[in-house]
Design a protein around this nucleic acid. Structure first.
Lengths: 258, 258
DNA sequence: AAGATATATTTGACAATGACAAACTTTACA
DNA sequence: TGTAAAGTTTGTCATTGTCAAATATATCTT
């Protein structure tokens, strides 16, 4: 045995998820393309793909393999199990309706940002922008308003585990690209009670996020994003933040009565 | 080697998905409970659970293992990839808004019913009823309006593959529980152009479903469900069916221009 | 609070099984 | 129609998933 990690893991299962993530991140790939990515022979790769295709978690659409439809109800099930989703959904809907913009409910898992629910109001832009990145849980928390709101209220020990592993990819010229300045920003987020995202993820898009806390723990964040042209001055500095914080507070109260 | 099936499959990966489905169907389980279900030792089971937990596809919440949050964006990604979802979503929304009831967009995979999108109108009931079954792709197609609409327009050879494997579980006293009568019903569905579900899945709930076809192939179905008390007489016999068929036709047209 | 019991987790050791290479098949292209 | 490329299957061997048992942790009992 070469790679005897401890605690032990099932390597084939890790490989299976590697493959699913390759299929997701590439938007579909051929056997050889996947084989290249995961560094296995085409024969082996084929056996994995066939196994998951049998189960409906992978699908072969004229020669290209994709993540299969069985992933949809599985994800939907997990979302439905989430208390935060159940009590937070209506606030996101309301925020989107009221402002006409896009609102998100976000949680953190394994140091990544998981969008639990999103609603696009009548004037919302960027639906397609989100679409293309959707399902990409490799998203870091440092370049979104909701992510920063979560990170700011994450216990220091855990934050120290998460941040050093970050890539700090420069998604736009405004993205914070070093740990030190992010930590300063997070300090400001804690003082203010909300986080801002000023075109740090997508140029032309600003956002405001507020933390959702319950029993002393950070549980997620709610955010509102809009084009920079519609989110300026006092709007961006205080009016919308106040509204988003209020929405987050309602969710916190809902959590208590649930 | 004992079980040398051909074509070959990765048994550990099959087991991993067995475990995920046990976690889903049980709504969370302990190591020993899972071990019992999958017929492995607790030690082995634990290694699988730990492997998937590392990856975020399984989660340990105070001693009970659950499907993990990474399933959410994965499912969301697959849904977003679906052409049918992208062009069908707005019709489902409209139908739900207009009638006040619940509307669904459904596809078939591996002989199971996959709910791609659902929208509950202001008067809709049964949200929780659906909730508890959500994410359960073991659903058969024989006891829902959308499922019957799909099955009716599935090529005969494929239908002959699917139906013999059915359990025909009697979910309510009205469920069709034998293949012969289902085949007759499907014949009627083809004549009428739409399918009905008269309390066959949930007592007190009726539904109407219409097939979505494109390039001679069945692609899915759209359905509307409402309490029996609000779906009676001409409403159930023709008015709502006409409306649902019209919605399905719009989706068919959208598919062409997409 | 301590002992007892059940459950979860880790580890040594071996047989099962996943991996490769190569054969074979199918598909794409010239 | 021939050739190349990609997909799929299979024989074989070394890797690794599996069990049993040991250890650790949690839960229950008196």
């Amino acid at each position: 045995m070469t790679n005897d990690r401890t605690p032990r893991r099932i390597q084939s299962v890790e490989l299976a998820f590697d493959i699913l993530e390759v299929l997701r991140d590439s938007g579909g790939a051929t056997v050889t393309e996947v084989a290249d990515q995961i560094d296995r022979s085409p024969g082996t790769t084929h056996t994995y793909l066939a196994t998951m295709a049998d189960r409906g978690y992978v699908r072969n659409r004229d020669g290209e393999y994709h993540v299969g439809l069985f992933a949809v109800p599985l994800g939907e099930y997990v979302r439905g199990q989430s208390q935060l989703y159940r009590v937070g959904k209506s606030e996101v809907d309301e925020l989107a309706q009221e402002t006409g913009e896009a609102s998100h409910l976000v949680v953190e898992s394994h140091g990544r940002e998981i969008p639990l629910y999103e609603r696009f109001g009548p004037d919302a832009v960027g639906e397609t922008l989100y679409e293309e990145n959707k399902g990409h849980p490799r998203w870091n928390l440092h370049c979104s308003a909701a992510g920063k709101a979560i990170l700011a209220h994450t216990p220091p020990e855990r934050r120290d585990e998460i941040l050093p592993n970050y890539e700090f990819a420069e998604r736009t010229p405004q993205t914070t690209t070093d740990e030190a300045s992010l930590r300063e920003e997070l300090e400001a987020v804690r003082r203010q009670g909300f986080a801002q995202n000023d075109e740090e993820q997508i140029t032309g898009l600003r956002a405001v996020g507020a933390p959702i806390r319950y029993e002393g723990q950070i549980r997620g964040a709610i955010s509102l994003s809009a084009p920079t042209s519609r989110l300026q001055g006092q709007q961006f500095a205080s009016e919308i933040p106040e509204r988003v914080v209020q929405a987050a507070n309602v969710v916190e109260i809902n959590l208590q009565s649930a």
